[in-house]
Design a protein around this nucleic acid. Structure first.
Lengths: 131, 131
DNA sequence: TGCAAAATAGTAATGATTCCTATTTTTGAA
DNA sequence: TTCAAAAATAGGAATCATTACTATTTTGCA
């Protein structure tokens, strides 16, 4: 099943590259539709899954019941604000080391890792101060 | 909304304590039903959510589309085998340190962390060797 | 250019989880 | 112990993110 080019997939990927807020499939759909009005939601889902399966993007699950997508496939962590639902990047330099340690401890083969921190983001902290 | 005792919740929690394989709500339901035949699936979901919200159990999302639950709330990581779907525990000693580093880097308040490794477990590696 | 493989749009189906409501259980106080 | 308010339950309906289906269109190689 060789992958063939499609304008829709290109637009989905391009859109994802412009965003650092880890949009959901529905957000991708609503945005791409502005430029390409009759793209279908199914196409968005199918292509996000295809891109994720091929390792070109990341699928994130942060616990809000919806999958998020990230065009940045470099090793990094995420932070989920349980107050506003924002998903942000976090760079931590110990990830390589952590993966190595895990591989040592495991009898299986470890291929990837995902870390998410939970709490309240700066903006939401400030807002709760104001009250 | 004070929490009142219920036999159903007690059985759900007791069952979860006996298991180290991080069962899903449906697995909890099917097992608890053996001893308490007319418990309802909604009750299982409601209580798992209540227990998780109160921090007495953990809700895990490993990417298979279903939530898993863990009665072990101590700091540890998980490993998800993408071949058989098993979820196992992994002890890594760098978690405290990692949380501290993350808190340093973040302007927000970090409350918890979740790490999952992905790959193929020992059993599945062995099976694929046999062929 | 012609054609098989792949992709799409649009819609229906799935399935985990949540919601709803009448009834039952729990628990603190009289 | 009895009573009543608050909380919980069973059972079923509803939700909603995601996937599956199918007729049609697009892609890309020979």
């Amino acid at each position: 099943m060789a992958v063939k080019y499609s304008r829709q997939r290109q637009m989905i990927y391009n859109f994802l590259m412009t965003r650092k807020d880890h949009p959901t499939a529905d957000v991708v759909y609503r945005n791409v539709r502005q430029e390409y009005p009759n793209i279908s939601l199914g196409t968005v889902y199918r292509n996000l899954t295809l891109l994720a399966d091929r390792g070109e993007i990341l699928r994130l699950q942060v616990g809000d019941g919806v999958d998020h997508f990230d065009a940045d496939t470099s090793k990094h962590c995420h932070f989920f604000c349980s107050s506003c639902g924002a998903v942000t990047d976090m760079q931590l330099d110990c990830l390589e080391e952590m993966l190595a340690k895990a591989q040592q401890k495991s009898q299986g083969r470890i291929e990837s890792q995902s870390t998410c921190f939970y709490g309240t983001c700066e903006k939401c902290l400030d807002k709760s101060m104001e009250k």
